[in-house]
């Protein structure tokens, strides 16, 4: 299935602004991240803690919804889903 990945702020330096990824059915956010970490090892410590949890203030959205309010890293992905990845940033 095809997933669109959008990266923002510092993550763009590594991932570019938008890419299409091909994932197997049943893939989760965790699957997607592991795929990214395989290609970009330096990204893992920027996104996950050493215990494998999403770092505080890192924002991962599935179709605009923060995965904190879904099933976290185990959130399932479907064909044509969009995943947005933000490092800690803020404004106001």
């Amino acid at each position: 299935m095809k997933i669109t990945l959008k990266a923002f702020a510092f993550y763009r330096d590594v991932l570019g602004s938008q890419t299409q990824l091909e994932l197997s059915h049943g893939a989760t956010i965790e699957t997607l991240l592991e795929m990214l970490f395989t290609r970009h090892r330096e990204l893992r410590p920027q996104v996950l803690t050493s215990e494998g949890r999403v770092k505080p203030l890192v924002i991962i959205l599935k179709n605009g919804r923060n995965i904190v309010h879904l099933e976290g890293l185990h959130t399932k992905l479907d064909d044509q889903d969009m995943v947005s990845l933000f490092p800690p940033v803020a404004g106001g």
């Binding site: 959008k6 923002f8 702020a9 505080p56 605009g64 933000f86 940033v89 404004g91």
Partner: peptide, 23 residues
């Protein structure tokens, strides 16, 4: 993570994409 690096690099305008992505 925000006070130390994020705001200095991108300014507050970095919020545009976050708010847009969440609708």
């Amino acid at each position: 993570a925000v006070g130390g690096k994020g705001l200095r690099t991108y300014g507050t305008d970095v919020l545009v994409n976050i708010l847009n992505e969440i609708g």
